[in-house]
């Protein structure tokens, strides 16, 4: 699984993704497209492609960072309450500032995601006996609790329908002008790369990393902030995509080992490939309708997660 091959696969899938859709645009027409077809490609197909690639890469890298910081294979934004907190934040912003721009909503959602993740990290510190499975378990439960607060408030304010669109990830609504926020995660990926070695050290524990001269608190806060920011951007633009941050880093590390700096880009590419493949699948399976991608990833993702769990347990 070399980065080279991953890039090639990604390019092939990207081209395929552009030519899959209800409006039939075939690859051979590429030199004589009419105005309508060009418009579809530039307003809908390409934005969709870019947002999937960025979201896939971003979520996978967030998962990788979480796993490194907690030193636990099963940590990820899905299993740490981050995504659920981000969703909660969106609801709060819709209730309190219904007229504000998407950026404001994203910021509020980010603050909530950050808060939720820090609560999770705080709970983790309390757990003395760090069993490999108890950490994600606590995170999933925390997510459930936050989720029930969200549902409670959504019922109160009659926003249930509104909020359920964030329940399941969906890229079909992505068009030009609705996805550009996702670009914020690109510089975040670069920062993550620059700090990757420090994340590795921070994962070895507070005492150890301070001993090595690392500003432990800063590095952990930075890592958690990157994860929370990427998660809230993805939840705002596309919705909740479960398990992506969990399984992609695990699969990559099966082949490439545990070096965070070395794994970061392959993880990002593989995440993009995985999400793109799932998206193409969910567009084809009941063509011309489509299944929300959250479902496709949910089915495939939970299946792979179960496999990983059993394999690890043996």
């Amino acid at each position: 699984m070399k980065a080279k091959y991953l890039v090639v696969i990604l390019i092939i899938l990207s081209i395929a993704s552009i030519f899959v859709g209800v409006k039939d645009i075939s690859f051979s027409d590429i030199y004589h497209l009419n105005y309508e077809e060009i418009e579809i490609i530039f307003l809908s197909r390409i934005p969709r492609l870019i947002s999937i690639v960025v979201a896939g890469a971003g979520m996978s890298v967030s998962g990788l960072i979480m796993q490194q910081l907690t030193q636990n294979r099963f940590a990820s934004p899905t299993t740490a309450g981050t995504i659920d907190s981000a969703r909660f934040g969106i609801l709060v912003s819709v209730i309190l500032f219904p007229t504000e721009s998407t950026i404001t909503k994203m910021l509020i959602s980010f603050i909530f995601a950050l808060g939720g993740t820090f609560i999770f990290m705080e709970v983790l510190k309390r757990v003395k006996f760090k069993n490999a499975v108890i950490i994600p378990l606590v995170g999933i439960m925390l997510g459930n609790v936050i989720d029930s607060i969200t549902t409670f408030l959504a019922y109160r304010y009659d926003l249930m329908q509104n909020i359920s669109s964030w329940l399941q990830g969906n890229f079909s609504m992505i068009m030009k002008g609705r996805y550009e926020l996702l670009y914020i995660s690109l510089p975040l990926l670069i920062i993550a790369f620059l700090y990757s070695n420090k994340f590795t050290i921070a994962g070895m524990g507070e005492d150890f990393s301070i001993n090595l001269g690392l500003n432990y608190e800063f590095v952990v806060n930075l890592g958690v902030s990157i994860v929370a920011l990427i998660s809230s951007i993805v939840v705002i633009t596309a919705g909740r995509i479960p398990f992506l941050g969990l399984i992609v880093p695990n699969i990559v590390s099966m082949y490439l080992g545990d070096n965070l700096r070395k794994n970061l880009w392959p993880t990002a590419f593989f995440g993009a490939i995985f999400l793109l493949a799932c998206d193409i699948l969910s567009r084809l399976i009941i063509y011309p309708y489509e299944i929300s991608i959250g479902l496709t990833v949910g089915v495939i993702g939970s299946f792979i997660f179960l496999y990983l769990l059993i394999r690890r347990h043996k």
Partner: peptide, 8 residues
């Protein structure tokens, strides 16, 4: 392991 069972 009980936690494994719950997570599973």
């Amino acid at each position: 392991n009980i936690f494994f069972l719950i997570l599973f």
